[in-house]
Design a protein around this nucleic acid. Structure first.
Length: 421
RNA sequence: GUGGCUAUAGUGUAAAGGUUAGCACGACAGACUGUGGCUCUGUCCGCACGGGUUCGAAUCCCGUUAGCCACCCCA
């Protein structure tokens, strides 16, 4: 029986792992500059956490969660997103008492049971930040700036940053109600696609970002008349834009951006990249001013984003293998059994001195060992044969210059360290 | 989840129902037996899985699985 990775999951092999490490390192370095600390939460949570936060009627909860009941009859889900677990952790660990304002970031796998495609996996990876405990528009702006900086550091180019203002919870309710009324009119409803006819009743905001042209026409024609934003929310959004203008971040306000998670309020944003096909969202986020209180915490604002690492690497055009391959300082090549034992000892000494080195385990010809050394991109090969053992020194060959010198066994580490500098 | 396209060594590909499934890259070994990259030689590794049609299937049909594309939705 040959086993395979399950649908929508994949192995990240050594040839591409450096891209992931580079991306993660870049993210950590960037977040540190902005004062964010890492937090790691479990990949599993109570299912109820996501139903409550992401929303009962959202697709993520309704049809995309990997949920199961464990042996203790608990309802558990693999996390489909990172925000809810972090809010849970913020409240559960009383971080609010430590400091009510927290800047947190996370990196890790998320799980959604969608039909897989390139750039859309069932286990995918997100890196994101959550700044909890402030209503300031400067925070919205900073979060957007950090996301733009992250995409830049990943090498993602040609993305567009779209912003919208959904308003506070009351505004959203007003909007939803107005849209329901609008779509219930026969002359409007008859123009919508079948999906939107259904959405008009269940989740009317989603009609706004329907891709079908006829629906777009309807939305453009009637949506302008819908007034739903209160004065505070309007001002908040205007201030966010001012801060962004101040640091010359490029963005486009798109009144049809609607996020698929119920907890968003006020500012929402999305970075999309044309080269990704239909999976063009490479990062997105927004403000969620009611989530913390909905989860039993104090009334306090928060804002965050998530970037899909898998997608970002595709968008950045990273190709596996370009930077792959192990590199080693010294390849030790013994000839014969006696020499192998000596080599084994030398290996231990060199490694203890901080020198990366490797050896062949199959006792092959020197030619083969030289080839292996070449493949490993070894900078030096240390040849140990009977002659060398007799003389008490090994032959150290520089693979680039082909220069070969004899070095006494007890001075090996020092000699090599001197040459590596 | 719906619809469509696809599936040949590790990778990229050829074979339009008819011998031992070909090629390139790759891996491994060797070319006066203690010296790498180039070259040459040899070796290794494959028809996704399961049924069916046929004298005969990589090739045609069905199913399964997986990938890809669009939708749904989303990072």
């Amino acid at each position: 029986m040959k086993y395979k990775t399950i649908r929508g999951t994949r192995d990240i092999l050594p040839a591409e792992i450096s891209q992931w490490q580079d991306a993660e390192n870049a993210a950590r370095e960037l977040f540190k500059r902005y004062g964010y600390s890492e937090i790691r939460t479990p990949v599993m949570e109570e299912t109820g956490l996501f139903i409550k936060s992401v929303g009962e009627d959202t697709d993520i909860v309704k049809k995309e969660m990997f949920s199961f009941r464990d042996r203790g009859e608990r309802d558990i889900s693999l996390r489909p997103e990172g925000t809810a677990p972090i809010v849970r952790a913020y409240l559960e660990n009383n971080l609010v008492n430590l400091n009510p304002f927290q800047k947190l970031y996370y990196i890790g796998p998320m799980f959604r049971a969608e039909r897989p495609q390139a750039g859309r996996l069932r286990q995918f990876h997100q890196v994101g930040i959550e700044a909890i405990g402030s209503n300031s528009p400067a925070l919205d702006a900073e979060v957007i700036i950090v996301m733009a900086g992250l995409l830049d550091s990943f090498g993602v180019k040609n993305y567009t940053m779209k912003l919208n203002n959904l308003g506070c919870a009351d505004d959203k309710k007003k909007l939803s109600k107005s849209l329901k009324e609008l779509f219930s009119k026969k002359e409007v409803a008859s123009l919508l696609c079948d999906d939107c006819k259904r959405r008009a009743a269940t989740n009317p905001l989603r009609v706004l970002d329907c891709k079908i042209e006829s629906c777009k026409v309807v939305v453009r024609k009637y949506f302008k008349e819908v007034e739903f934003l209160c004065a505070d929310c309007k001002k908040h959004f205007d201030d966010v834009l001012k801060f962004l203008d101040l640091v010359k971040i490029k963005y486009a306000v798109d009144p049809y951006i609607v996020r698929g998670l119920d907890y968003y309020t006020r500012t929402v944003f999305e970075a999309s990249c044309g080269s990704l096909g239909a999976q063009n969202a490479v990062g997105a986020g927004g403000r969620y001013d009611n989530l913390i209180s909905d989860m039993g915490g104090p009334v306090t604002g928060a804002c965050g984003f998530a970037v899909g690492i898998d997608r970002a690497l595709i968008a950045a055009g990273k190709v596996p293998g370009e930077t792959g391959g192990a590199k080693v300082d010294v390849f030790v090549a013994p000839l014969g059994e006696e020499a192998y034992k000596k080599a084994f000892l030398v290996l231990a000494d060199l490694r203890a001195s901080g020198i990366s080195c490797d050896i062949d385990y199959e006792s092959r010809s020197l030619k083969s060992q030289m080839r292996s050394a070449d493949k490993l991109k070894a900078r030096f090969v240390l040849i140990i044969g009977d002659d060398e053992i007799k003389k008490g020194e090994a032959a150290l060959r520089n693979m680039q210059t082909k220069e070969q010198v004899c070095v006494s066994f007890d001075k090996l580490a020092a000699a090599i360290n001197g040459k590596i500098e």
